[in-house]
Nucleic acid binder design. Structure first.
Lengths: 234, 234
DNA sequence: GGGTGAAATTGACATAAATCAAATGGCGCA
DNA sequence: TGCGCCATTTGATTTATGTCAATTTCACCC
């Protein structure tokens, strides 16, 4: 995202952007909300498309509107760790640092709403609710990151897989408890999220299937058959 | 920290508290700083003393003044993961959540400055610099947490140990590059920070010593003999 | 100075997960 | 229908780290 206004990004202004209901600006009163939303622009990304890179100037703050974004870090030799999954309503990036510290990539097709960091900072000076809201989002992300530290540092592969499936299920809570949903990540991405290899992930999926705790069919549609027992493994 | 005002905590007001130079309130102008600092109280803790617990009401925001605080999470069976080390100047807790999500414990003797969350929130409404400053601290902690996700998920035991030693060395940067310093954590705590067992930690310390990359003496005083080579292992 | 107990080290062995390698499955497309 | 390309699964084997069990070190204190 070197230059968000360059025409190949196909931006369109989103005066009535869903971000209002989803995102960090929902703390504003109506007048301020109008003004703030006018600063935003949405953009669509395809599966695997790079959204921003470590080291690049932190010019835009994003808000995921549709789809999932993976935030990851790399070691020199290519080892990868996904440090966060951005679901709709989640904030992307921050308004503090001068550079991005991570890579962000679209998982499946996504839609993201962007705000200029400079303008947000400017706007927030006279609207503490913006700071407060962004602080809330950041604190939430810190909580998730620390939950994942516990998972990566202390859980077994089976526990990791179970926790991951329950995390996904959380994002379908509106549906019935055992509602089927599509696993949005490839096996390699799951491995990079859980600090495992693709083979270990695959083996434990097979394991859970043979134990009849989950069912998978038709291109990674998943049903959690026994939610409670899966939870006891996490 | 059930009740910070109970007398056994031995609180004393810190009108001229070092937190001013170290902490999240240094963004304020002098007038506001006076007012804000007056809300703080310092307290001392001994090695191993519990500072706050998961599930307790989030009544106080802390700022580490002296010593080191470990923030950790537990699994039901007692497995522990340290998710953050709080060094002087670091913020402890947050002003968003209604409950603490972690355990905090003193590593060695510490001194911590506390503010009432309710009063900070109140004060910040008319002082966006406070929100901004706390947001900066939180964003920084998120960055550290994600760096550690990479370490826990993808680094080998040797790389973890090397990274840990370099982290400690970072906090002695004022000194000469190869300045000796005391390792503040016990082996078990290092293990809980790195997602390893105590035996693995010990073995890799022995390893680094036999390779002459580090020296340890007189009660865990440490010298990094070959900084560059240690860095290449991290 | 010798005794005590916690912390750290070391050794022998077990095992979960990684690695290497092959087979299978699924999907778009000619 | 069948080819080609990935993604996934499965199998065989290795290895890093965990586990269990002594032993050693060291700080502290009488």
């Amino acid at each position: 995202m070197n230059n968000i206004t360059s025409n190949h990004y196909n931006l369109d202004k989103c005066n009535n952007c869903p971000v209002r209901d989803l995102s960090f600006c929902n703390a504003l009163d109506n007048g301020a909300l109008e003004e703030f939303s006018a600063l935003s622009k949405t953009k669509s990304f395809q599966d695997g498309q790079l959204i921003f890179s470590e080291g690049k100037t932190n010019e835009y703050l994003g808000s995921v509107i549709l789809g999932i974004v993976k935030i990851y870090k790399l070691l020199d030799d290519g080892r990868q760790q996904i440090v966060s999954l951005g679901f709709p309503g989640d904030m992307l990036g921050n308004i503090i640092d001068s550079e991005y510290n991570y890579f962000a990539e679209s998982v499946g097709d996504t839609k993201i709403c962007f705000y200029q960091v400079a303008r947000i900072n400017n706007f927030a000076e006279s609207n503490p609710a913006i700071y407060r809201s962004i602080l809330g989002k950041t604190t939430e992300q810190l909580g998730h990151a620390r939950e994942w530290l516990l998972l990566l540092g202390r859980k077994t592969a089976q526990e990791k897989i179970a926790s991951f499936l329950l995390l996904l299920a959380e994002h379908h809570k509106g549906d019935s408890p055992n509602q089927a949903f599509k696993i949005p990540l490839k096996r390699q991405e799951i491995a990079d999220f859980l600090g495992l290899t693709i083979e270990t992930v695959s083996r434990h999926f097979s394991n859970l299937k043979s134990k009849q705790l989950i069912r998978e069919y038709a291109g990674h549609m998943l049903t959690i058959v026994d939610y409670d027992q899966l939870k006891s493994l996490a």
